[in-house]
Design a protein around this nucleic acid. Sequence first.
DNA 1: AAATAAATTTACACTGGGTGTAAAAATTGT
DNA 2: ACAATTTTTACACCCAGTGTAAATTTATTT
Lengths: 216, 216
Amino acid sequence: MGLDMSNPPGLRNRKKEETRQAISNVATLLFVEHGFEQVSVADVAREAGVARKTVFNYFARKEDLVFDREEEVRVLVRKALADRDDQPPVQTFQSLMRTLVETQHPLFRITERPIQFWQMVADSPTLTARACELQVTLADDLTEMLSATAGRPQSDPDAQLAATMLMATLVVAYRQALRAFREHRKPEAALISVMERGFVGVDAALFGTPYVTASD
Amino acid sequence: MGLDMSNPPGLRNRKKEETRQAISNVATLLFVEHGFEQVSVADVAREAGVARKTVFNYFARKEDLVFDREEEVRVLVRKALADRDDQPPVQTFQSLMRTLVETQHPLFRITERPIQFWQMVADSPTLTARACELQVTLADDLTEMLSATAGRPQSDPDAQLAATMLMATLVVAYRQALRAFREHRKPEAALISVMERGFVGVDAALFGTPYVTASD
DNA sequence: AAATAAATTTACACTGGGTGTAAAAATTGT
DNA sequence: ACAATTTTTACACCCAGTGTAAATTTATTT
């Protein structure tokens, strides 16, 4: 039946998913209220009614209690690159981002919720550091996807440059959107403005490579 | 006498600088030989003939035993931006980077030493993460320097985009240079190739802003 | 339904990074 | 030589994260 091959129901797997969610929810609540550094993993465990070890059983690092949606983004990008109709890969990626912003995709819309989430991140050196890590991980993944899509060797310099500049652009665009929101200006306008500028830059930097130029 | 206001000699200050260096040197040796994660701060302290607390007295984090030259880069950039002759700031920065590479500045030349240094970093998740952090810190500092130089408000979106894309470019360029070195190709060629591409992108992205366009 | 196999939770002990405190040792100035 | 200041040290903590083996829960087999 299901489209969800990854989770054959069964009592056991359902409970696993439930406790995982329970722990994650409790953690988020505590972190937002008291700050990431002020809440220990032991606190989270106690509040979730579970052993400390169980928390680490589900989340390798404390920071993973906060960041656990990277994979969704990766899937979106991979799918878009697979479905593209002989448009160059960088253009495909750019279109995807424009669409996600315009359609207010849950992971990209700027509302009160993400604001306080990123405020919590900004208030915690540990979380800020982890966010940096995730950014370069995503850039590396994007590098592989781009080079694979263009039939180029892994870690092709052009792909790496494209991916890193694209991620840089998105990070700055998102930061400016959050800033705009706090200052009661249109966040989407700020986001798109920076994003389009960045995209122009990427296209210029990669001009002549198969990442921005049609292959046939 | 001194150009070095920061260190009035005196027996005490001299010894401080000596022990700091001693600890740092011992640490680097141990880390390169056995790997960052395999060597504990207690090991470093013992080998340096000093108390564990003393190590943390000089270096706030274990990673700081490895990365302690960021400030030198910041100073170089600040000086170049101050000395510029009404060239737009982004161009000044780009010229500085070209010069540092061409003149084989100690912090930028690609030789056996940095290779094993960065290999050690690559082998350690902790150090890799810290390197990411430093990258965004430098980008933020560069943002401020650029916007200040152009007489714009702090955290100007254009400055932030420029700074972040510039840092992204440099990181990719340096990574490719290391890669070229390992594969017995000309590292400088690889570095410059990526760097120039990135600079073209930055100029295109920022076209029309005071960061790449002459002010008078 | 009972018994067994497999996976999960838990208690416990441990390593290592990092901090606070107060005493001991060393440096400075008079 | 003595007093004031700074640095080092020993010691006692807290917290993140890991390994292990026992206990508990779920799945499977007969």
